[in-house]
Amino acid sequence: MALVHLVGSRGAADVLVCEVPSRAAADLLVCKVDSRNPARGNDGLWCFVDSRAAASSLVHIITSRGAADLLVCYVDSRAASGWRRDHPLKGRL
């Protein structure tokens, strides 16, 4: 499930994410959605939520690719979203 809550510190995060500009460099292509329903069970569709309790993942954005658990590139299309390669976090967001 990709109900994402952004947290301000590394220690509070489940996942450290680095946003990359290139699809080729990304582990996951992410399409931001406004509704929670399409995001449930789909790692490539992220719905940002205000509540930690409602979130399936607590994410902290970092700038270092080497320190990141996950590299993401944002896309405009739901059809283009999804995993680009096998990853340990697949199905865990």
Rank of each mutant, 00 (worst) to 15 (best):
V15L: 11
L70V: 03
L29P: 04
L89F: 01
R10Q: 14
A79D: 14
L28K: 01
A12I: 00
L3T: 10
G8V: 07
H5F: 12
F48P: 00
L45K: 07
D43T: 01
A55G: 08
A68S: 14
C73H: 15
A54P: 00
D50K: 13
S51N: 10
G44V: 05
R85D: 08
H60G: 03
S22L: 02
A25M: 09
D27R: 00
H5S: 12
L93R: 12
L71G: 01
L28G: 03
L3D: 09
R78A: 11
A12L: 13
D50N: 13
V59N: 11
S57T: 14
G82Q: 09
A79G: 05
D14K: 06
R52A: 15
I62W: 02
A80M: 08
S57A: 15
V75E: 00
R92Q: 13
C18A: 14
A25Y: 11
A79M: 12
A54Y: 01
S9W: 06
T63W: 03
K32R: 15
A53T: 13
D43M: 03
S81D: 02
D69K: 05
N42E: 11
D69I: 00
V17Q: 02
S81K: 07
L3Q: 12
P38F: 12
S9A: 10
N37Q: 13
R40L: 14
D69P: 03
G66M: 06
G8D: 14
L45Q: 09
A67Q: 14
P88A: 09
G91W: 02
V49W: 07
H87L: 05
F48N: 01
M1L: 08
R92E: 07
I62P: 01
R84F: 02
A67W: 00
D50M: 01
K32T: 09
D69R: 07
D43L: 05
L58M: 11
A79E: 15
R40P: 00
L16R: 13
A80N: 09
D86Y: 06
A55C: 06
A53S: 14
S51C: 09
V49R: 11
